[in-house]
Amino acid sequence: MAILRKYFIGLLGLCVILVLSAGCGSTQYGDASNVPVYDTDFGATDLQQIAAKMTTSLLTFPPIVQITDERRPVIMVERVKNKTTQHIDTESITDSIRTKLIRSGKFRFLDKSTDSQTIAEIKRQQDQGLTQQSQAAQFGTQEAAEFILTANLTEIKQKKDEFWNKRTSEYYKFTMNLKNLKSGILEWADEKEISKLQKNPRFWY
């Protein structure tokens, strides 16, 4: 009993700390336009920056402005070549760029990823006998892409161990090209560079 009394204040303090730390856990909605950055890995803010830069650059490039003033060219998007060591869903980068370009009203896109579903649906319309044949979609009527959009994502990672800190520097470069399929000419190209730095104290986890 005497021991309990002796350590009462200490135990009480421990209880208060435990209660306070238990109260810290929470789940809440964040802001998708301002996603927090915790490390140097490729993140949502990087994706958003790349999509914004590439869209602005393509839409304001004078020869492209001239072309899109006259017509809405058809573009096909190739998957981004991920040359980083990270597993990145690069399709979401091109999805964001494609969505922004479509919504600008300046371009039209072909979607290769849904070709198998398209073929199945055309076959269904033609073979099942349920669809009016005058309205049924036909094979060989789709428009051809005039341009192809290709991209590369590369990274350079550097690490430095200091006495107090561990420093990591990550450099990303996203390069995008618009190639004319008939002439083979690159009509537009641009790149976005992103640098991320992280400093972690060595003796604190």
Partner: peptide, 8 residues
């Protein structure tokens, strides 16, 4: 309105 993100 939701299409623009904060750019650092």
């Amino acid at each position: 309105a939701e299409g623009n993100a904060w750019t650092p």
